[in-house]
């Protein structure tokens, strides 16, 4: 039976973040935490392989204790088991230190396939998948739109700007999945109730990664944030909210003509 590991991350729903129109700063209060959409698509890809060929699907997440929520969600969707890496030693990790920790955790398992989302909506780096694959010393296929398994090979459609590469590789490999490619299934209600009543989420500390502390977290991060700042929006122009459609059309057409855009 295939053994699949899926890495998932809990992220703030950046679609819900708004900008304070007066101060120009982020409004973070009340922004819900969700399973990163690309990771959820990755989990769906794993569950489709499970439906088709039978597989053991284990999810791994790294984050604060509240990230257990998305592990429960993953199990309710159909994953078999879940592990949370949670330790202050991971704090402040950049993508390389994150990948180092994940690599250490993954080495505790036997696996054929590691699936990750292409990128997380809070960081948008798309680096953790390839970096983890390099540290594990196994091939990667990123930007996957589909994953199949035939005659001992994983067949992956890698979708890039103007073409699709159909690629094949033997286990073990890392695949990063495009969020828009797979619509994730809903949670199964019976499984959801079961996971809250009966299921213990495994929580691992840094020790389980068998990695020296200086390679983890802030200490293990070659990149550092020097500063961060809210984005300056350019000043608003004219807004007209009392025109009928005919007048509005005239104003726009006149503006286009005056500015020589026609």
């Amino acid at each position: 039976m295939l053994k699949i590991l899926v890495c998932i991350k809990q992220v703030p729903d950046t679609n819900e973040i708004k900008i304070d129109p007066v101060k120009g700063t982020l409004i973070r209060e009340g922004v819900p935490s969700i399973m990163n959409p690309d990771d959820k698509a990755g989990l769906e890809a794993a569950l489709r392989l499970k439906d088709k060929y039978g597989a053991n699907v284990t999810v791994i997440s790294m984050g604060p204790m509240q990230a257990q929520e998305i592990i429960r969600e993953a199990i309710a969707m159909g994953a078999d088991d879940g592990y949370l890496l949670s330790d202050f030693k991971f704090a402040g990790a950049d993508t390389l230190a994150t990948s180092t920790a994940l690599c250490g955790a993954i080495k505790n398992f036997e696996y054929d396939l590691v699936i990750m989302g292409r990128q997380a909506i809070d960081g948008d780096t798309a680096q953790v998948g390839p970096e983890t694959a390099e540290l594990l010393g196994i091939p990667q296929i990123s930007y996957a739109a589909s994953i199949d398994y035939k005659d001992g090979y994983f067949i992956v459609e890698r979708k890039v700007e103007d073409r699709i590469y159909v690629l094949k590789a033997k286990a073990p490999i890392v695949v990063t999945v495009l969020g828009e490619s797979m619509k994730p299934r809903y949670m199964n209600v019976a499984r959801l109730i079961d996971v809250y009543r009966n299921k213990q989420i495994n929580v691992w500390t840094a020790e389980k990664t068998n990695t020296p502390a200086e390679k983890l977290g802030l200490k293990g991060s070659p990149t550092q944030v020097k500063e961060s700042f809210g984005k300056q929006l350019k000043a608003a122009g004219t807004v007209m909210d009392n025109l009928d459609p005919q007048e509005a059309a005239k104003v726009i057409a006149k503006t286009l003509a005056e500015k020589h855009y026609l």
């Binding site: 973040i17 982020l26 948008d124 070659p222 990149t223 944030v225 500063e227 700042f229 984005k231």
Partner: peptide, 16 residues
């Protein structure tokens, strides 16, 4: 840009 473009961050690699 990070946080879906909500935040800009300046990154350095001081030691590598």
């Amino acid at each position: 840009p990070a946080f879906g473009g909500n935040l800009m961050a300046t990154i350095v690699s001081p030691n590598t």
